[in-house]
């Protein structure tokens, strides 16, 4: 059994790189990524699991990093927006202007990237099912949906 208390040294695999970090067991993954690793792409929005601005991938699945303790992520592969480079979704967001203020963008891109990895040709219903996990307070949903549709191939 693994036990952590006080200040604990753990190893996290972030964007393919194994990194050692000292955390409190109560530290969320979001804060460790941002404050200890300087990976500020995941945003602290609501910190209540509602907005999706903090979305990262754990073993390829999107999760809200404000609801995950860093110690829970040990042994999993963590992918943040910084680990995605020139992916079809990122190109789609650029081409379709799928953002306005940009605060929510990294969460949307990470989630949409996972969506296309799972469903390379998603139908509209699947896109909506996945993307309702993320909020855009600029309400630019139409552009976001177009960006993802552009990144995907023909629909399922």
């Amino acid at each position: 059994m693994i036990t952590y208390r006080g200040q604990a040294a753990i190893r996290l695999t972030v964007n393919g790189e194994v990194r050692e970090v000292v955390v409190r067991p109560a530290d969320t993954l979001l804060h460790v990524l941002r404050d200890r690793f300087g990976l500020t792409g995941a945003k602290a929005g609501c910190e209540n699991g509602d907005c999706g601005a903090c979305t990262v991938l754990l073993d390829g699945k999107p999760v809200k990093s404000c609801m995950v303790l860093a110690v829970e992520a040990e042994g999993s592969g963590i992918t943040t927006i910084e680990g995605l480079r020139d992916t079809p979704v990122q190109r789609g967001f650029l081409e379709q202007a799928g953002f306005q203020c940009g605060f929510c963008t990294s969460g949307f891109i990470v989630n949409a990237h996972a969506l296309l990895q799972t469903h390379p040709r998603p139908d509209r219903e699947t896109i909506r099912d996945w993307l309702e996990s993320n909020l855009c307070r600029c309400t630019g949903y139409e552009g976001i949906e177009k960006a993802i549709a552009a990144a995907a191939g023909p629909r399922e």
Binding site: M1, T3, Y4, D27, V71
Partner: peptide
């Protein structure tokens, strides 16, 4: 941020979980 400190256990068996509790 969670302000208070806590201890985290990751048991591998039911017995370890009950022991940790």
């Amino acid at each position: 941020m969670i302000a208070h400190n806590l201890v985290y256990h990751r048991p591998e068996t039911i017995g370890e979980a009950l022991g940790a509790f």
